[in-house]
Design a protein around this nucleic acid. Structure first.
Lengths: 338, 338
DNA sequence: GTGAAAGCGCTAACAT
DNA sequence: ATGTTAGCGCTTTCAC
């Protein structure tokens, strides 16, 4: 690999001149002719700045870490794209990490930041992570922004408008004429579950309805959790005619389980989910979903991390624009008895 | 962040002594007492070796890149886990990258290697990438191992036993009594598609059967490609009674389209796919699939990259152990007329 | 058994 | 307008 020295030798100038030109310093102070020689030499040698050299000198890597609970979760596609687009525009690179099953975020993050592999991080912790595992984060003053999660006292977060998402989903069923609407939610300790809950309740309250306590399950966001929720909800009397599911993976499981139980969707039961993804389009029937703005959240998160790195400013932000968007497919219909 | 100097000062020893102890050099040549002082000091200061400093000095990052066409594809979960497990055991870290849609691999790789961000790479190129885009790779002598892909003249690859996977899938339908078996395959230029094709053909030939040319579609591996394949195959006369799909995403689409067309699975049509993933369990009906050993391939790929980095050796490897495994679910049954 | 010192590639303050 | 130089944190050779 060619170094600055190689380029300098070939162009017949000093190393610092080359550095100034190739790292486009604000004031490179070289003549047009010299600049050209340098640029040519660099191209001929296929010069690329050495990452370690630059990072060591500047104490900056221009890398931000993005850690999500499960990288292959379709939900995070847009989040990652948003993060990468924002990073690229600002001259940063995104380093993807999984918040490992065993050590919920803690060790990975400490390494990434402590060893100077990244300048800052955007961190989405999973539904199932105990908030206690986040303790280390808040003690460090590292530039960490939480995505769709929270920790008491931690400042710096970007979140989806979960409240509104659940509200829109519930309203959709109300408008179809449903009056017994259940809610398959995440775990009680989950930050997002809490906020989706308020949206569900508000929609019902506004319509002048109240549901029995058992109409909300708080089991979790996985496919299996969704299956369990379906069984529990459809064992109630009276049965709900519609279910709002707080997560698309859970909705996929719930739908599969309904199928298995011989419950027809949407004839016997309407299902609407918060979150859209390609999997929702490919269930049978295709799932009506409220599309959340993951792309925008990804951008905002990286923007926030970089601001924190470069200026030290922090903020807590909710992405409300664009708002969540209802995508009507075939899993919802008016209730039979209506 | 504490440096070696800080630790040395606190322990009252030289920097080099600290370095020898903390980087567990084979021969640290320090007394037990000194060693203890050093280890204590490091712990108290929460010392972590600076990544850039180490990389700059040693010209090694201990990082291998893993680039796949679409990180969020459920198929790559196991591949990544295998890669990470192998890397961890050998003291390496995995850096995840997407082989970007726009620049098919080329630029990402050149940067990662050229800037010294990684020591080597495992690269899986997508079905849709033109082999021409890989030209740069082979010219460099960089430690790159291709995963489930090939480039003429490039040495260093690890692949699934695609031939056998398709063979097993086809045999399953044959054993159920099907005699008109179609094959929804990937693009003709796709390396994996070529090998899956030989498995399909061998199974048929062994059974003494021949299918008309139109029984094989070569459209691609996406959900939409699967939908198209279904329409094309079910327009034939006579219709196939069973379809082997070369990719699980395509199978999901194909199944959805069958549903839409009013074709009952498995009563009217059996569907078996090569590749298993959680999505296959959650279609309706759940998909019979041949589970390919992605985890093992991930491990083997990283092992191969590291060997290439450390010893310069190269190899082309097919993962045959464990063999692909048939997982019977509910999308396959004997043909109606049988 | 321990320490001093050079140097990896780069940037930036300081000459000239 | 261009060059010299120090030093980022680390490893490693060499000297003691």
């Amino acid at each position: 690999m060619a170094t600055l020295g190689d380029v300098a030798a070939r162009a017949g100038v000093s190393i610092s001149a080359v550095s100034r030109v190739l790292s486009d310093a604000p004031d490179s102070r070289v003549s047009a002719a010299t600049r050209e020689r340098i640029v040519d030499a660099a191209r001929e040698l296929n010069y690329r700045p050495n990452f370690a050299g630059r990072a060591l000198k500047s104490a900056r890597t221009q890398v931000v870490g993005l850690v999500v609970p499960d990288i292959t979760n379709a939900l995070f596609t847009e989040l990652m794209h948003g993060a990468e687009d924002e990073a690229t525009e600002r001259g940063y690179t995104v380093l993807l990490g999984r918040s490992d099953d065993v050590r919920p975020g803690g060790e990975v993050i400490a390494r990434l930041i402590g060893e100077g592999r990244v300048d800052g991080m955007a961190l989405q912790v999973g539904d199932a992570v105990q908030p206690a595992g986040l303790r280390d984060l808040i003690t460090t003053q590292a530039p960490i922004v939480l995505v769709n999660s929270s920790y008491p006292g931690h400042v710096g977060s970007v979140t989806l408008d979960d409240h509104r998402g659940a509200l829109i989903a519930t309203q959709h069923l109300l408008e179809l004429g449903h009056e017994r609407i259940a809610f398959a939610n995440g775990l009680p300790r989950s930050f997002t579950a809490k906020r989706r809950r308020t949206g569900y309740k508000l929609a019902l309250a506004t319509a002048g309805l109240r549901m029995p306590k058992e109409y909300e399950t708080r089991i979790g966001y996985t496919v299996d959790n969704g299956r369990t929720a379906l069984r529990r909800l459809m064992a109630l009397d009276p049965k709900p005619t519609g279910i709002v599911v707080a997560n698309v993976n859970a909705a996929v499981g719930l739908l599969g389980e309904a199928r298995r139980a011989g419950i027809r969707v949407p004839e016997d039961l309407s299902v609407v989910t918060v979150h859209d993804s390609w999997t929702a389009e490919n269930t049978w029937p295709p799932l009506t979903a409220v599309k959340m703005q993951f792309y925008t959240v990804g951008r905002a998160a990286v923007r926030s991390v970089i601001r924190r790195i470069e200026t030290g400013e922090t903020s807590d932000e909710v992405v409300t624009d664009p708002p969540p968007e209802l995508v009507v497919r075939e899993s919802t219909a008016p209730p039979r008895t209506a």
